[in-house]
Design a binder for these strands. Sequence first.
DNA 1: GCCGTTTTCGGCCCGACTGTTTTCAGTCG
Length: 612
Amino acid sequence: MNKTNAEIARMLRMISYLLDMSETKSKKTNFKNRAYNTAAEKIDNLSISMEDLYKSEGIKGLLSIPSIGKAIASKIEEFINTNEIQYYNQLRSELPLDIEFLELKGIGPKTLKSIYDKVVIKNIEDLEKAAIEGKIRDIPGFSQKKEESILKKIKNYKDCRNRFPIGEIYPFVKQIERYLSEIKGVKKAITVGSFLRMKDTIRDIDYLVASNDPQKVIETFVNMSEVKQVLGKGSSKAFVKLNNGMNSDLLVVPDESYGAALLYFTGNKQHGINLRKIASSKNLKLNEWGLYDKSKGIKIAGETEEEIYAKLGLEWIPPEMRENKGEIELSKTETYKIYNSGENKISQLIGYEDLKGDLQVHTNNTDGKMSIEQMVLYAADFGLEYIAITDHTKSLKIARGLDEAQLLNQANKISQLNDNIKTDNFFTDLIKGEVRNNNYKNLKNFRILSSAEVNILKDGSLDISNNILDKLDIVGAAIHSSFSLPIETQTKRLVDTALNPSVDIIFHPTGRIINKRDGYPVNIPKLVEVAKDTKTILEVDAAYERLDLKDDHIKIAIDNGVKIAIDSDAHHPLQYVFLKFGIGQARRGWATKKDVINALPVQEMLNNLKQG
DNA sequence: GCCGTTTTCGGCCCGACTGTTTTCAGTCG
């Protein structure tokens, strides 16, 4: 049981695929398979769980999702209740092909059907074997060249690691972006796609370049040393596989099409489709080259995104919000004007320069790499005004967690440092050889907060008592063990923590590590409800392998009036840069500056805590 | 199969690249 949205979407997508394979030229079937595919995409982008929706509201809940009608809703219901869809079984009894073909890019249902009709295959292994044995080249419509290309595509499928955490590839992606921007004649070069939308993980890296010499840019791109294989190229586009296994696409357009191309290539796909539908309804046509007036046959916009959105009756939408989750409705100029008298999300979204403090920072007193003083120095250098020192507590043995005496000792030291920081020469010794810019002038007003990342035990209690915690400026708590308890127990551990009057923030609430572990199960709406009642802050841990809370959870939290903190979880000064990824997730969750507690100056932030 | 400010029928986003199709189907994003 417990069907994820991804599993449901995959089933619908495979139904679409099988319908496409078995389609008799009739147009009706053609649109039927598209309907299944559209429903699958919709579900993939949904912020709520279909199963939860079904359990709380029944089939009516499913029908409330656009693109899901009676027929598809009843199949989802069947899948949730019986773990099967008879319609799918029936299709598969006619075409017994493994669902993995969905992930084999470049070979679609039509190609596969032509092969299937002549050679018995069931899965990708069979297909590879048939190609190696030369059984495909003689099928009508195929050739030796096509057979070779099938083998290449299978190799690509096997090589491809699914998705990379955004922070892991960030420097590499930016390096190529800089390289492209330095090609002679290039006016602009930018990384677009899910990277620009700040998705937590990235599959493909897409670049957009504005230049009047596309051939030169394309040749330079496909000949970079980072390129392992050229998958295709034409007069405006190129597709390559990079050495790290990722696919990368390049689109080159003239300056006057830059905005249209940026809009098209940033996505997401459904956002783009909806914009093109709006264009169509206004007798306009939108593509990657511009916005055109159909009746007059002339281009009316294209150089900037803003002018295109404006001509469609919309305010500009930040890339992080372009996920087809209601942002188009929100940006309609009429809606916008009403809201904008006070509270429009789009104009108030938390910005990349808005954080004033960082509420989770570690030092070499436990598992961090540097001292409090060094972490402070670099934080000031980074432009922050305060940090909380949140070393682990005693029951987390692996990090040499602090006991009560050590914790109080550290708090005393921090208190002294706060006094000394105001004197002119205090950091002189430390600064020697470490100064990178002149932000140290901010140091005098810098505030160090005593804190801890208190360990939540299996029964939901903490490993440090409240009378000790109350001596700290701010308290964070987190789960680091017993991940496999059932959802009710895990939720109760976090709810009990939120109910604890000494705990201000719950750190990385779901415990996920991207590509390594899913995290423990948590009833997020329930936790959010208690957090709201108790004024507990939920963290967005910005370390790129965590990004926890994730975007959809952030949206649930702030929609319910819960404040978030965006923290780096830095164990080294260079890790303050992680804050960028946390802010990206917060923007994806539509968080405004007001929703983020550490966008406040230190005293206001403290005043807004539970006991503040 | 889904949808509706042209609402229960008749539409359904748009264009680049590939292969071998001399005018297009398949696939992708």
